[in-house]
């Protein structure tokens, strides 16, 4: 499909298209990266469609997309036929209200809270208050990550409330001194810096900070990855190289993720 410009004296090179599908967590970031890439390469168009990490991996596998986006690592089987390129890291942390005296929590205690075995902060040495357990909407990658981490099924989780968007979760915790929720470390740190009355709980005694996620010390994190066939085309490699370069670090930071090139 040549979209040549007839009015120009020079013959323009035909426009090349890259199709990217997958993770809705990574898509907004990749969309911004793509915009910047297109500015420097006017003959390239990048189409981004969301539909979840699984779709991204499938599409990349059967060639429907040039690049698949995933917010989970590839399984061993998938690794045999596909190549993955890490774009950024994102941690997931547990958040409580700033006035909640709890300072640290064990994995077992967290699991008990989320499965309904612990219902009062007093049982953990806190105030005598019922715990408001906030779960995230089904299908979000945080949900599967946390369930995998605690080795529970989503249907085992006994929640009082469900938050969709990150902002809703933040507001719920900021307005309820007995609530607990989990979400992206980047988003949470950003809210704390703005003075929102929330507190990030350390996990396995490791403070939930973007820095610890970047170092790989923080236990609950997920990579945002590009998935391609084992021999990606030149154009695909060029875009991935661009997305992994320090030129896009500001965009990664804007989206509250951790760049792999920061350290």
């Amino acid at each position: 499909m040549g979209c040549s410009d007839k009015t120009g004296m020079q013959e323009q090179p035909s426009i090349q298209r890259l199709i990217v599908t997958g993770s809705s967590t990574a898509a907004p970031l990749v969309s911004d990266i793509a915009k910047r890439f297109e500015q420097s390469q006017p003959d390239i168009r990048i189409d981004i469609q969301t539909g979840g990490s699984s779709r991204g991996i499938t599409d990349a596998g059967n060639g429907l997309a040039d690049i698949g986006l995933s917010s989970r690592a590839l399984t061993l089987n998938e690794k045999e036929i596909l190549q993955c390129h890490t774009l950024a890291q994102d941690g997931v942390c547990f958040l409580i209200h700033k006035n909640n005296p709890i300072q640290k929590i064990t994995n077992k205690q967290l699991k008990n809270i989320y499965t309904g075995k612990t219902t009062n902060w007093k049982q953990l040495g806190g105030l005598d208050k019922e715990i408001t357990v906030i779960q995230r909407a089904q299908g979000r990658s945080e949900v599967s990550l946390v369930c995998q981490y605690f080795d529970v099924k989503p249907s085992d989780i006994k929640a009082d409330l469900i938050a969709g968007e990150n902002q809703q979760g933040i507001k719920m915790v900021a307005n309820d001194e007995s609530a607990i929720v989990y979400m992206s470390v980047g988003t949470s740190e950003y809210e704390v810096s703005r003075g929102t009355p929330i507190k990030l709980l350390p996990l396995k005694s490791i403070p939930a900070t973007a820095e610890n996620v970047a170092k790989g010390d923080y236990p609950l994190s997920r990579p945002l990855i590009f998935v391609t066939q084992s021999h990606p085309s030149q154009l695909v490699s060029k875009f991935i190289e661009f997305a992994q370069s320090p030129q896009v670090n500001d965009l990664i930071k804007d989206h509250s993720f951790v760049s792999i090139t920061t350290r």
Binding site: S24, T50, G52, S54, R55, Q138, G139, R140, S141
Partner: peptide, 12 residues
């Protein structure tokens, strides 16, 4: 619908 459509695939 609003909560889940963005992350839903397949039969979901």
């Amino acid at each position: 619908i609003a909560l889940e459509l963005g992350y839903a695939t397949g039969q979901h």
